[in-house]
């Protein structure tokens, strides 16, 4: 797919309440460009706020706001109801990392086990941004948040790997910095039966202490330094996406500091923590290579 083949239509309307340069806002916009009839379920997250205030909404598609733990369960119900009523629509659960990795994990795992016909997108901005930048289990090691003032001690939870071992037909990682890749992955996910999972890297300028104009740039740097690996797992086979496969060899990757120095949340990071992050990147690449 080429960039010029992407649809003209905009169903994510301007004047929404997202912060300038919001990665999630771009993600939702790309979702409407990939899927013809999206029916979206959003648990408590930034995504429930950026739609704007009643009686207007920036979403020009059916959307249900639901309690934080319930994205997987509500999406399951809607998918079944649509099937019974014979209505057309692709049910998408659009949850943040808090609503996926922490609070929504059991509902997601339950939906995956039952094989509900939904696409679950985890937009990963690596903390609870909506409530004021608290750490989540998806926050990377060394990152500042309001609850980790000295940098997080633990490492990022790998939710895509958790979904991988649920033996789903389709699991992928994507980034808002590579829009065509994300659109293609959504289209592929739509073509599969059962539960599909996509983890979307989604930069947050206020939460990452990042300049609003650098949203796309930081996402590209994450891929070029190997910190974010784009891959897809389809019918039991894992493939590193072409964009990321260039950075398989450590020599080909840019130094990690290029990625970290752009973000204020890593401003106070020590050399030891950088070394730990680098080791974690190597471990992740090795871990993924075992599934290929």
């Amino acid at each position: 797919m080429l960039l010029r083949d992407v649809k003209f239509e905009e169903k994510w309307l301007p004047g929404n309440a997202a912060c300038p340069g919001c990665g999630l806002s771009l993600g939702l916009r790309l979702l409407t460009k990939a899927i013809e009839k999206p029916v979206v379920v959003i648990p408590a997250s930034c995504a429930s706020v950026v739609q704007g205030a009643w009686p207007k909404s920036s979403a020009s598609f059916p959307l249900l706001n639901i309690a934080m733990a319930g994205a997987g369960a509500a999406a399951s119900g809607i998918a079944n109801a649509y099937e019974m009523l014979g209505k057309e629509g692709t049910v998408v659960a659009w949850a943040g990392d808090g609503g996926t990795a922490d609070i929504g994990l059991q509902a997601l795992s339950g939906a995956a086990e039952r094989g509900e016909n939904i696409i679950f997108v985890m937009y990963d901005n690596e903390a609870y941004m909506n409530t004021g930048i608290q750490r989540s289990s998806s926050t990377p090691h060394g990152a500042w948040t309001t609850t980790t003032p000295e940098g997080k001690r633990e490492f990022k939870k790998d939710v895509a790997a958790i979904m991988l071992v649920h033996n789903l037909e389709y699991v992928a990682t994507a980034s808002v910095s590579y829009p065509v890749d994300f659109i293609e992955k959504l289209k592929k996910a739509e073509a599969h039966k059962g539960t599909k999972f996509i983890q979307l890297y989604s930069p947050c300028p206020p939460g990452w202490r990042l300049d609003a104009s650098k949203t796309i740039e930081v996402g590209k740097l994450a891929v070029e330094t190997g910190a974010w690996i784009l891959y897809e797992y389809e019918n039991g086979k894992l493939t590193i996406s072409p964009i990321s496969s260039r950075f398989r060899e450590k020599k080909a990757r840019r130094p990690l500091i290029d990625y970290l120095s752009l973000q204020g949340r890593f401003a106070g990071i020590s050399q030891q923590d950088i070394a730990k992050l680098e080791a974690e990147i190597d471990r992740k690449w090795e871990f993924l290579s075992k599934f290929e």
Binding site: P14, G15, A17, Q51, A53, S57, S58, F61
Partner: peptide, 11 residues
């Protein structure tokens, strides 16, 4: 809510 421009105000 119904879809419309400027749900977050005049941004």
């Amino acid at each position: 809510s119904k879809p419309g421009f400027g749900a977050g105000g005049k941004t």
